[in-house]
Design a protein around this nucleic acid. Structure first.
Length: 257
DNA sequence: ATGCCGTGGAAACCACGA
C-alpha cells in the first residue's frame, strides 16, 4: 500500500498538477496540506472522478488539510487539536482509512521568530504531542503525515548555518520534533535512508530547485505497529519541475499489507 | 541575506508562506 503526503499550496490553483500526479503515481492514501480553499470550494467532484474518496477541513484563504483514499473506506475521526478553544486554523484532520488511523498535519510556519506566531507554533507542537501520545496508547496502526515545518537535523537543510534563527530550524522546534519522535514514532524516510540528502521543499525563487537548495520538512511518522511494514519511501522530485507546480514535493511510503 | 515567486481574496494591493 502506497501512502503519500503533498503540500499542494492551493488545491484549486494546483488542481491540474494534483490530478496529473495522482494519475501518474496512484497512491492509495493521500494527505494534502495548504488547500487555501473554503470547504464549499474544495474540488470534490474532480477528485472523485479521479477515483478518490475525500475528507477535508478547509477555511477561507489559508491553511486547510484533506485525506484522500482510493478503494479504501475512509471515516473521519476528528478535526482540529484539543487544547486551544481560540484556535480556528484548519491544520489537522484524522481519519480511519481501512485499518490505519491517518493524521494529516499542517504545522504552523512560526516566522517571524521570536513573536506570537512562533509562540503559536510551539503551543501547537505541544498539542500535537499530546494527541500523538493518545494515539500511541490506542494500540492501532497510526501514521502522522504532513508538512511539519521543521527540518529535524542539519542533514535536512542545504545550508544549516543560514537557518539557525529561522522558525523552521530553531533549537526549540527541532527539540519539539525530537520529543515527538521519541514517544515511539519512526521517521520513515530516515529509517530507510539515514544519511541521504532528501528534500521536500524548494523556494520558488533564487533557482532553488535547480541549485538543489532545499529543505526536508514534510514527514511520515509511523507508530510501532507499522515500523516493520515499511518497505520503501521516497519523494516525487520531478513534480517540482512541472508547470504551475507547488513549492513542495510529494513524499510517499510503501507498506506491506 | 533578501519573499526576488506564487496563491487567494479583496480591491487594483494586501496577507501569508518558508
Amino acid at each position: 500500500m502506497k501512502i503519500a503526503t503533498y503540500n499542494v499550496n492551493g488545491v484549486n490553483g494546483r488542481l491540474p498538477v494534483l490530478l496529473r500526479w495522482l494519475e501518474a503515481t496512484a497512491p492509495d492514501i493521500v494527505c494534502l496540506q495548504e488547500l487555501k480553499s473554503p470547504n464549499e470550494k474544495f474540488p470534490v467532484k474532480a477528485i472523485n472522478d479521479a477515483g478518490y474518496n475525500a475528507l477535508w477541513h478547509g477555511q477561507k484563504q489559508w491553511n486547510g488539510v484533506a485525506i484522500l483514499s482510493r478503494n479504501i473506506e475512509i471515516n473521519e475521526v476528528g478535526r482540529g487539536l484539543a487544547g486551544d478553544e481560540e484556535d480556528e486554523q484548519s491544520r489537522y484532520i484524522e481519519a480511519l482509512v481501512g485499518d490505519i488511523l491517518i493524521a494529516c498535519i499542517y504545522l504552523p510556519n512560526g516566522n517571524p521568530a521570536p513573536g506570537p506566531k512562533f509562540d503559536y507554533k510551539l503551543k501547537w507542537f505541544e498539542r500535537l504531542q499530546d494527541r500523538a501520545a493518545e494515539l500511541l496508547a490506542l494500540d492501532t496502526p497510526v501514521i502522522l503525515a504532513g508538512d511539519f515545518n521543521v527540518m529535524p537535523t542539519e542533514l535536512d537543510v542545504y545550508k544549516p548555518e543560514r537557518w539557525e534563527k529561522d522558525a523552521l530550524f530553531r533549537p526549540e522546534v527541532r527539540n519539539a520534533f525530537k520529543k515527538l519522535v521519541d514517544q515511539g514514532w519512526t521517521d520513515a524516510i530516515r529509517k530507510l535512508y539515514p544519511n541521504a540528502k532528501i528534500y521536500t521543499f524548494y523556494d520558488y525563487f533564487r533557482n532553488a530547485y535547480q541549485r538543489d537548495a532545499g529543505l526536508r520538512i514534510d514527514h511520515f511518522l509511523l507508530s510501532p505497529h507499522l515500523r516493520d511494514n515499511l518497505v520503501a519511501a521516497g519523494v516525487d522530485r520531478e513534480v517540482r519541475g512541472w508547470e504551475k507546480t507547488s513549492d513542495h514535493i510529494p513524499v510517499w511510503i510503501n507498506l506491506t499489507e
